[in-house]
Design a protein around this nucleic acid. Structure first.
Lengths: 187, 187, 187, 187
DNA sequence: GATGAATGAGTTTTCATTCAT
DNA sequence: AATGAATGAAAACTCATTCAT
């Protein structure tokens, strides 16, 4: 039931937004009562926190798998990270959108926790770019922090407009963005 | 007074979000009453609509000035458009953030109107890129629609993280992004 | 202007009801402002009072003309009074409906005043019936007070359903009701 | 609790009118909160609709019992219908008054429903009168539709003035009106 | 595990009214 | 005579949350 509630919430939060979705809306779809909700979650925000936590934890894990692979060039690591982010649109579109849009609704305590992990993810990218610069794969003199934000902008923005049933496939999109980004920063 | 309300609303909407900001919050700061608010606006959403409308209208106008300048290369037009977007962070950060984050809260009728203009802005960029391709300034075979979304991603994402009092100036940021984008797509 | 406001108010009060009609609604139609309204009337209720007062005063006057005519039998006086009430649907439908429906919204002080006149009108009818009984035109032993309420019920109820553009003319309706009532009480 | 709310609402709606009665007024008497009200009713209008629906449904049922009795003459059926309406003043005065006065406040969708049933009630009376004419109990040539409105006028108007503690009993009033109406239309 | 009743604090909105100009 | 800005009190309604069962 807990899982059902989470899944349904994500769908509704994505469609209507966190504050526009009431607990009632969620439990109505599942045909249970509000009491049930509060049996599993201590508050609405707690649920949002869970969603965020699950999402970023999973993302970080998968990023780590890429980074741990010693055989890969920095270019390759970066490409795979871009792929990681963009492909999530297909698999986890709603979660991702909730993740990007609704951070604001987390209370201060929780927000720190999530922010730390988001920063971790970003800094991992930055580190990859930095090493790529040192190893001559990327241009010297890049402001790698700004570049990293730029990379995240390209990928994350896609959650705002990408339609899975459009004419461009996820694979094509990954290729286009990898190409644009690498050309933008390589030697 | 109408202007005061709008200005104050933008500040609060940016800080707390549209749905987390009550009319009471707004009028409290201005030391007037809710009645005053409803004297000038027919609803909370109407106010949000005004904010959106003002923002996008102004942006489109300034974009048009760039596009109308016949002497500029497509690269130059693109650079100036990027500058236009990024510099708005300094001048109109709060408005911009409200614009990007709170579209969801516009009702259906209004949303169409705004969407049309947002699309117009995007398609204007796409057209510039297209012409740049035809005139040999940019690489052949680019998916210019996806590239355009990428450009918007880089610039618009900056509203999420850029702090005006940080170590990087707006001008530096513009230069970094112009460089990254042009390298990413030029011949 | 005062007259214009009154006329327009009656139309709106009839269509939407007194409490569903705002001062704003009234002045909007006349393309003036609320200030104008308060220049002529001290309150919304004052306006309603005026409407009531005008209506009942005029009705009483016309009733008096009938009663003062010494040549008429009581039957004839009663017939003419019925005609008086029913024909007002055509001429003054809206005022009449407002008069019957919205008394409740008068404040206590005013209500007394109007009630007194309404009672006067009713008691005049009762007196006519009484004299008719004494003069042998109507049956002995009638509860003339109840009969009078019955007569008023028949006529006043017509404001609830009568449509001027229906198949029955006002004159026909008067004839039908006079006939029904007289047969109902005559010797 | 739902029933308590309904009962109390009827009392208040009768005393002060629907729009002059706030949800707060209702729940104050019951010493519960507004939340409780909205737990049972989706809106103020929904409550009014319930009241109307209950009233007219019950009235129609009781009318049907009269009409189904094959042994009764049309005169007798008509008398009993008049009794049905008038006696409700004693038993259900407040509901009845709310029913007659506040239809206007039902929204369009609901109003249709109620109107249909009110019309049904009226047409049942008209049918009785019609059959009475055919069977020679009532005069030939009557406009039975107008007559029916007249009958309803007499009975319904009593809700406006009848005081249960006055000098005339309900039974007397029924007798007076039955007499007046039958004399008014019989052969 | 789950329900159903109830709460209370807050939300947007309405509107008669006032008053300086 | 009339306006336009502002008020303040109240309205209907929402909703996260609690808790006894």
């Amino acid at each position: 039931m807990k899982e059902k509630i989470t899944t349904q919430s994500i769908i509704l939060f994505e469609k209507k937004g966190f504050s526009q979705t009431s607990i009632q809306d969620i439990v109505d779809v599942l045909e249970v009562t509000k009491g049930t909700f509060y049996y599993y979650f201590s508050s609405k925000e707690q649920l949002l926190m869970d969603i965020h936590s699950d999402y970023i934890t999973n993302l970080l894990e998968r990023q780590q798998l890429i980074l741990d692979n010693q055989d890969l060039s920095q270019k390759e690591k970066l490409s795979r990270t871009i792929r990681l982010l963009v492909t999530d649109i297909a698999d986890k579109g709603p979660s991702a959108r909730v993740f990007f849009r609704e951070v604001r609704h987390l209370a201060n305590d929780n927000i720190e926790n999530i922010k730390k992990k988001r920063d971790q993810f970003r800094l991992n990218i930055e580190k990859t770019v930095n090493e790529g610069v040192q190893q001559g794969e990327f241009r010297k003199g890049l402001r790698t922090d700004m570049i990293t934000f730029g990379i995240l902008g390209i990928t994350n923005w896609s959650y705002q407009w990408y339609k899975p049933d459009g004419e461009v496939s996820i694979d094509d999109l990954v290729e286009i963005y990898v190409d644009m980004i690498l050309k933008g920063i390589e030697q």
